[in-house]
């Protein structure tokens, strides 16, 4: 409980200011029995930062992300997300984050508009605000006139972009993206990253995991997890310098090859 006191002074509404930390994690640990899935990771993420979260399968990414989203209780260590403590303010955390996974959470049998309304409604936006947001979102995605199309009928790239826009429909402090761009063509992938940049411009922090190493290079900073530890954390350029690597792929391989544990 001690570790939660430190930030209590800033836990009232919208505690995040420019240049402040949206995520702070200190020796955050999660153990399942003898198995230490996440081993004392410490890092901070700034407002508006695009933060890449890499690691081989089984390195502990998913577990760490769950703790930060308030879905899983840490074993030890401390962390705040959007200014709220992960131990006892997870309901507040959930209100202030957006989440999008590879298997987006869109309802295939609802229309674009219905999906937007649904999620905006879930996050408690007022009717007027929902209307405004829907119009804005459709415009940004160039989907005007398509709002009555069932999501099922959309190409994969559209779905991805829509899912992202819906994940930030409530203007969260931070959005978690879990391998968001699997399988789409390179142009759509870049359009998607443009959306990420725009969100970051608006001050939304983006926390993203990916298997595409060139995407890691789009991030302001990248962390690489190996066996539950955070073995590297820096800007892509600095990482490449440190590891005398030509690409992030090289950096990743050098680090991930040190892994001893299997899933």
């Amino acid at each position: 409980m001690e570790n939660s006191n430190k930030n209590n002074s800033v836990t009232n509404s919208s505690p995040i200011k420019d240049g402040s930390k949206v995520i702070t994690a200190k020796e955050l640990t999660k153990r399942f029995g003898d198995f230490t899935a996440v081993d004392k990771i410490s890092f901070e993420v700034e407002k508006g930062e695009i933060f890449g979260f890499l690691g081989a399968n089984g390195a502990g990414k998913t577990t760490a992300m769950r703790m930060l989203c308030g879905l899983s209780m840490p074993t030890s260590g401390s962390a705040t997300v959007a200014g709220y403590d992960v131990y006892n303010q997870n309901e507040l955390i959930k209100k202030n984050i957006g989440y999008m996974s590879q298997k987006f959470s869109l309802y295939e049998d609802l229309t674009i508009r219905e999906n937007i309304k649904l999620y905006a409604g879930i996050y408690g936006l007022s009717d007027a605000r929902i209307k405004e947001k829907t119009a804005q979102l459709l415009e940004e995605l160039h989907m005007q006139g398509e709002e009555k199309t069932l999501v099922r009928a959309l190409p994969l790239g559209w779905k991805q972009k829509l899912a992202f826009s819906i994940a930030i429909v409530h203007d969260p402090a931070i959005v978690f993206l879990d391998e968001p761009t699997g399988g789409v063509d390179p142009i759509t992938r870049r359009e998607f990253w443009t959306l990420i940049y725009q969100a970051s411009e608006k001050g939304i922090t983006v926390f993203v995991t990916t298997h595409y190493m060139d995407e890691a290079e789009y991030c302001n900073r990248v962390s690489i997890m190996v066996d539950g530890r955070m073995d590297a954390l820096d800007s892509p350029a600095n990482l490449m310098k440190t590891y005398s690597a030509k690409s992030m792929d090289d950096v990743f391989l050098q680090l991930a090859r040190k892994a001893v544990r299997v899933e």
Binding site: G55, A56, N57, G182, G183, H211, D249, A256, A259
Partner: peptide
């Protein structure tokens, strides 16, 4: 190699 990490892909 879809969904497999970079090490295994290599």
């Amino acid at each position: 190699t879809t969904g497999v990490d970079a090490v295994s892909r290599k």
